[in-house]
């Protein structure tokens, strides 16, 4: 197992991913090798079907490579069982989605509180941390509102707060601004940068949005299942 003190936060080694599609096999990833250092703000671009989401899924431990290895925080995620992988995701990773994927029956505060409760944080502490996170995102007044009562930008800020509240090593964001207008999208990316600066969290973002790409510290380009030089 790699030494986490010297190794990058994410290490992908010759990762391949094949999908069956009818009677044929689609090669979504064709041997990707990648290192991502801690505390970095990495943006991945590429056309639709280039394999961005597949690579994010492998790094996020929600899919397994057909070949190759994926190490996150020194852990080979393909070696973990479902329970261990779930615990790993709960403690070390955060996710932000294009469609927010907030739990509609929970308020903004409860949505942020939810991953803390999964990590067995006592309820009063979880509630305090969730409210603090909302405050840091300027959403204190919306704490008790449900996602249906929030704007798209507010929902995505809640989603970012939910991803960050457990202090994960890595936040994976798949098209986080795709459903937002450009001004709101820019605010979300600014918020992510700010959180990275404040909390030291590593961000890996896939996007088509040039505005987001412009804020990248490091740019990755995907094409036809391969990583190209940016």
């Amino acid at each position: 197992m790699p030494d986490t003190t010297t190794q990058p936060l994410v290490r992908v080694i010759a990762a391949k991913k094949d999908y069956p599609l009818g009677h044929r096999i689609v090669q979504a990833l064709r041997g990707v090798t990648l290192d991502i250092a801690s505390h970095s703000f990495v943006v991945m671009q590429g056309p639709s079907g280039s394999g961005k989401t597949t690579l994010l899924n492998l790094i996020g431990g929600i899919d397994q490579p057909t070949a190759g290895s994926v190490f996150v925080a020194g852990q080979d995620t393909s070696k973990l069982g479902d329970s261990e992988l779930s615990r790993f995701r709960a403690q070390r990773l955060g996710f932000v989605f294009q469609n927010f994927n907030l739990i509609p029956v929970l308020s903004a505060a409860e949505n942020i509180e939810y991953p803390l409760r999964l990590n067995k944080v006592p309820a009063p502490e979880a509630r305090a941390r969730a409210l603090a996170m909302l405050a840091s995102m300027g959403l204190s007044e919306e704490a008790h509102q449900r996602p249906a009562e929030l704007s798209g930008g507010q929902c995505q800020r809640v989603a970012v707060g939910r991803a960050l509240v457990t202090r994960p090593d890595l936040v994976i964001a798949d098209e986080p601004t795709a459903n937002l207008d450009s001004a709101t999208g820019a605010k979300i990316i600014e918020l992510m940068r700010e959180m990275r600066d404040r909390l030291g969290t590593t961000f890996l973002i896939s996007t088509h949005d040039p505005q987001v790409a412009a804020l990248a510290e490091r740019m990755l380009m995907m094409r036809d299942g391969l990583l190209c030089d940016a």
């Binding site: 929600i62 779930s86 615990r87 994927n101 999964l118 990590n119």
Partner: peptide, 11 residues
């Protein structure tokens, strides 16, 4: 799916 990414197990 989103809950599973947050760490909810199959159980």
């Amino acid at each position: 799916g989103a809950m599973r990414t947050m760490g909810v197990t199959r159980h």
